[in-house]
């Protein structure tokens, strides 16, 4: 049993959920077409491979955060889904459609927020939002969006004179104003102040509650934890881990179990009872630390070992790592060129 576990843990691929497999509840019905289904996507720019066999499935009515270091392939993946780039290999289906061949049918159904720009430098904020709304059949009330995203005070300001945060909020408003089924948000909160970031999060949550699926890229682990149902960590053009933030925190990185007890416990004997990738140490006399994949089985093993050895594990505590720890562990801590 444990041997099988250890085997399954040997490869980070264990975290990748197979398309269609669901480990937690989904608002979408099982037979439904997933809003985004990317299989084996490869995209090269000249000799450089930007995306290298990437699989990604977004479930209906959920928020998926795509995390990864700069240059990991996040924007390329999004832009392939949006129809800007032609895959060199693999298939991309968005709302069941081919983003390039079926572009005309797909475009009205998706909302897109680019990483930057997208607005005439001389256009006023509200003018541009109204114009974008006018390209859709049943847009969201513009006044409501202006108010929700705090664009009222700068509604008559030309785009080039808006602050970076105001430009971001306008781009977000333009992405959602057409009542899309699916939105792609490329770093929606980059450069936003905390208030604007909260307003953006509230908007995304409300859209999810209304049944809109959302794919967003971010460098903020806090944002991924706060907002997303699923997280896909991309590195080197591949998904190296995928799951809910809880699953990733639990499985993706080493966690720590601490307890106090009688000094000088036989840790070698304890380790024999634990999976092979677990470590144990007595930090100060009577203060023990176990590092590894801390799960209920491990906790039960530790406490029963303590029971067998007449040890009362005081102050027993599991320290869960943050998503940022998981991210850094998976993608490395070195600064990349």
């Amino acid at each position: 049993m444990r041997g099988g576990d250890a085997l399954a843990r040997a490869s980070p691929a264990r975290l990748r959920r197979l398309p269609g497999m669901r480990s937690h509840s989904s608002p979408g019905s099982p037979g439904e077409v997933p809003p985004v289904q990317v299989t084996g996507l490869v995209k090269r720019y000249g000799a450089k491979i930007a995306v290298d066999g990437l699989d990604l499935t977004v479930r209906a009515g959920t928020v998926t955060a795509v995390l990864g270091p700069n240059g990991a392939g996040k924007t390329t993946t999004l832009e392939t889904c949006e129809g800007y780039r032609r895959p060199d290999d693999g298939t991309v289906r968005v709302l069941g459609l081919d983003p390039i061949a079926d572009a005309a049918a797909l475009r009205p159904r998706i909302g897109v927020m680019l990483q930057s720009g997208g607005v005439y430098s001389g256009a006023r904020a509200e003018e541009m939002l109204r114009h974008t709304a006018g390209l859709h059949a049943h847009p969201v009330d513009v006044a409501l969006l202006v108010e929700r995203l705090g664009l009222g005070s700068c509604g008559r300001t030309p785009y080039r004179r808006l602050s970076g945060g105001q430009q971001q909020r306008l781009a977000l408003a333009m992405a959602v104003v057409g009542r899309p089924e699916l939105v792609f948000l490329d770093e929606p909160t980059a450069g936003l102040d905390p208030q604007a970031r909260r307003a953006t999060w509230d908007l995304v949550r409300e859209m999810r509650a209304d049944g809109v699926a959302c794919v967003l890229t971010t460098h903020s682990m806090e944002e991924a934890e706060e907002l997303s149902d699923d997280v896909a960590i991309i590195d080197g053009g591949r998904v190296i881990a995928q799951g809910s933030p809880e699953e990733l925190r639990r499985d993706g990185a080493e966690n720590t179990l601490r307890f106090s007890g009688r000094p000088g416990l036989d840790l070698a004997s304890l380790l024999k009872a634990l999976p092979s990738d677990t470590a144990a140490a007595e930090l100060t006399p009577g203060a023990y630390r176990i590092t590894g994949k801390i799960n209920p089985q491990l906790l039960a093993t530790v406490t029963s070992w303590c029971a067998q050895h007449g040890v009362m594990p005081d102050r027993i505590a599991v320290e869960q790592h943050t998503l940022e720890d998981v991210f850094l562990e998976l993608t490395g801590r070195e600064l990349r060129a």
Partner: peptide, 9 residues
């Protein structure tokens, strides 16, 4: 408010 109702003008 955001319930999907897409379509081109």
């Amino acid at each position: 408010t955001f319930a999907p109702r897409p379509g081109p003008a």
